[in-house]
Design a protein around this nucleic acid. Structure first.
Length: 708
DNA sequence: GAGCACTGC
């Protein structure tokens, strides 16, 4: 589909970084060619809620009810129901493949433990919520449709009805429901599944459901039963938080995975992965597939290129090889390619980011090569700067990766680090709540009447991050003071939007500048993934084709121009138009859905619709109302200084303003790579800034020196 | 004059 975006042809620029040896060099691992015996870890076989595309495994020809009875959890059914009945809060540790996600809600329903309410089961991912709900509806039989007894709710899609008793939903969706009813009275049983993943939403929900349960008891209304489902071994931490509640353990269906460590550390983990692959390639039967974990697109394409090249060398032993890369930014048809069956006598090797750790499950993997690194976003509350850094994975993650080799049968995992390097890794990944920007969490909690500094978190976020969030809310007028216990009327309106509060503020002030239409479009485009496709080898061509949309005012107006044009195109020519202009159709359609949702919220907040037509000054002013703290001033030749934190920054080369030097620019993003770069820019006038944010200009002692 | 792991409302 997006055939222009074919990264495979672009690898020539990245290969030079990494010399190709004519022949793979040997790499030594413990176990087969080293002294210590491999550690065996029991991991499991089957997990219904992940989308598994099976190309090699034949589906067993047994009835759906027989399949249910064969799940490990089935043996424990009555015991489990008894425990659930007796405890208001319970932790269920279930290995993957135990059947907990699909079966336990059904058991609870058949025993009528939910009484007059619903059973709500949260999932961190949309696809999981949808596919489990479909599976459970099917298991329930009698031609049961999703949306009857069993349903799901995710953003843009609510497949439930008044009959729905078992409701799967994303954790973010339940959090949103909690903002409208903090006691979550719709539910009598809430199951927080995959709790070990510790998403920011699940972490907030821990506190929300704990509080709802307590208040419901005090108010003597229908009680709430809480079940935490997790794969973690760290029960004590969870149990202690939930008032020392009971925990039960469910076995999964497991296959052993042999673990090998390297005998010496390998700084060049990419090279070591290539060598480890060829060691396996030489020894293993051709139908044994290999999964390699690396950190990002460029690294993956580089290693893919090397493996393809080396495999063709006449003196390299082993069968034919087909190499696939896998990362989220890929067009979906390329992503689907990893599920293809390979011809006989051809080995499949998939090189992936951590998307293959949890979100995408590929059947038939016998070998995992774990590079031991991950690219992770880190946030600095003091500067507000987010950057992507390559760092070591945690032990938890390394077990998760190893487990991908043992889903269908016994497998092996080659770790590109030594045993002592493994032991030096962090035991678990730092929860997202301790790494993230808390602007949205702070306003959401306040909408439920709780201050983030006093909220009962399982693991508290850093105080500076909370304070930074409140400083921002105060500047935006969402709270009166830093320790406010409630939102201002403006803040309450802001909290209704599923957006960073700065963007909500723009929408709420847009009508003063008669540009609600345009603001909705720009904010929706900023909330979605980028609609611009820039294939590394055709970057200049793409920029040239899109030249006609470029606005001298910058990137936001340029995006608006593209969207306006897209909207005027007939449905049938859309795909072609996107292809010709290097626009990502999937992402622009997603932006349109977001826009519809935001428009609906504006409507319910009594914001009248308005358009500024071609007067872009109106829109530029509206952007300032929410983003006045993101302004930078030209300092000297190409170098800018941010007004807020006085950081030295530059215009990112991908920006439409790159090469120009406007005096004052508003930005939506700072990224640090080789330098600090600003992305998502609009030029503004300094009088506007003084008119729109006088308080900020005064309290931050800002002098706009540059004439505009 | 450069590069962006992954989710979610």
């Amino acid at each position: 589909m997006d055939s222009k975006y074919n990264i495979a042809h672009s690898s020539k620029s990245t290969v030079t970084k990494f010399q190709i040896k004519s022949k793979p060099i040997p790499i030594l691992f413990s176990g087969k060619n080293g002294p210590p015996s491999p550690k065996k870890v029991k991991l499991n076989g089957d997990d219904k809620k992940k989308i598994t595309f099976s190309s090699k495994i034949l589906q067993p020809k047994i009835s759906i009810q027989e399949q249910r009875r064969k799940l490990p959890v089935f043996q424990q059914r009555n015991k489990l129901l008894d425990i659930i009945k007796r405890h208001k809060t319970l932790i269920i540790l279930g290995e993957t493949g135990s059947g907990k996600t699909t079966q336990i809600p059904q058991y609870i329903y058949s025993a009528r433990l939910q009484e007059n309410g619903k059973i709500g089961i949260t999932q961190p991912r949309r696809v999981a919520a949808i596919s489990v709900a479909m599976r459970v509806a099917q298991e329930h039989g009698n031609g049961m449709e999703v949306g009857d007894l069993v349903g799901y709710t995710v953003r843009f899609e609510d497949v439930t009805s008044s009959k729905t008793k078992i409701k799967y939903l994303t954790d973010g969706m339940m959090l949103r429901e909690a903002m409208f009813d903090k006691l979550l009275m719709e539910y009598t049983v809430i199951i927080l599944d995959e709790a070990h993943e510790r998403t920011i939403h699940t972490d907030v929900l821990f506190g929300i459901v704990k509080r709802a349960q307590k208040i419901r008891i005090e108010k003597k209304v229908t009680p709430l039963k809480i079940i935490i489902m997790s794969a973690t071994m760290d029960v004590d931490h969870f149990s202690k938080y939930f008032n020392d509640c009971q925990a039960v353990y469910l076995e999964g269906r497991t296959y052993p995975v042999n673990i090998f460590y390297t005998l010496k550390p390998h700084d060049d983990y990419q090279l070591a992965c290539v060598n480890a692959f060829f060691k396996i390639h030489k020894e293993a039967p051709p139908d044994h597939d290999v999964l390699i974990f690396l950190t990002g697109q460029e690294e993956i394409e580089s290693v893919a290129h090397q493996i393809r090249t080396l495999a063709k060398e006449p003196d390299v032993e082993g069968p034919m090889v087909r190499v696939f890369s896998l990362y989220a930014a890929q067009p979906s048809n390329q992503q689907m390619a990893v599920f293809q069956t390979t011809p006989t006598n051809t080995r499949k090797v998939i090189i992936s980011t951590n998307i293959a750790e949890t979100s995408v499950t590929i059947a038939g993997i016998k070998y995992v090569i774990d590079g031991g690194m991950v690219k992770a976003r880190t946030f600095h509350p003091s500067t507000g700067l987010e950057l992507l850094k390559i760092q070591r994975i945690s032990q938890e993650q390394s077990w998760q990766r190893a487990g991908r080799a043992g889903r269908d049968s016994e497998g092996s995992c080659y770790r590109i680090y030594t045993r002592s390097q493994f032991e030096a890794m962090q035991k678990s990944t730092v929860p997202e709540i301790q790494r993230a920007n808390l602007n949205s969490v702070a306003i959401q909690l306040l909408a439920m009447g709780v201050h983030a500094l006093t909220f009962d978190f399982m693991d508290k976020p850093p105080k500076e991050a909370v304070v930074a969030a409140f400083e921002q809310l105060k500047m935006l007028g969402a709270v009166e003071s830093l320790n406010a216990a409630h939102l201002t009327p403006l803040g309450t309106k802001m909290s209704k939007f599923p957006l960073d509060p700065r963007f909500s503020k723009v929408l709420l002030s847009a009508h003063q500048f008669s540009c609600v239409e345009e603001s909705l479009t720009v904010i929706a485009l900023l909330s979605a993934e980028s609609i611009l496709i820039s294939p590394p080898n055709k970057r200049e061509l793409a920029q040239k084709v899109r030249q006609k949309f470029t606005s001298g005012y910058g990137d936001h107006i340029t995006l608006l121009n593209i969207y306006r044009e897209f909207n005027s195109i007939g449905q049938n020519s859309r795909r072609n138009w996107c292809h010709e202009h290097y626009i990502n159709l999937r992402n622009i359609l997603h932006a349109r859905e977001i826009r519809n949702q935001l428009e609906e919220i504006c409507r319910s907040s009594d914001i009248p619709n308005s358009s500024c037509g071609s007067n872009m000054d109106q829109l530029r002013k509206a952007l300032i109302t929410g983003l006045f703290m993101n302004v930078a001033e030209l300092h000297r030749d190409r170098q800018y200084i941010t007004l807020d934190k006085k950081q030295t920054v530059f215009i990112h080369p991908s920006s439409s303003l790159h090469g120009q030097q406007p005096g004052l620019i508003l930005f939506t993003e700072v990224v640090q790579t080789s330098k600090c770069y600003l992305r998502g820019l609009t030029t503004i006038e300094s009088e506007w800034l003084q008119d729109i944010a006088p308080e900020y200009i005064r309290t931050h002692n800002i002098k706009c020196t540059k004439e505009s």
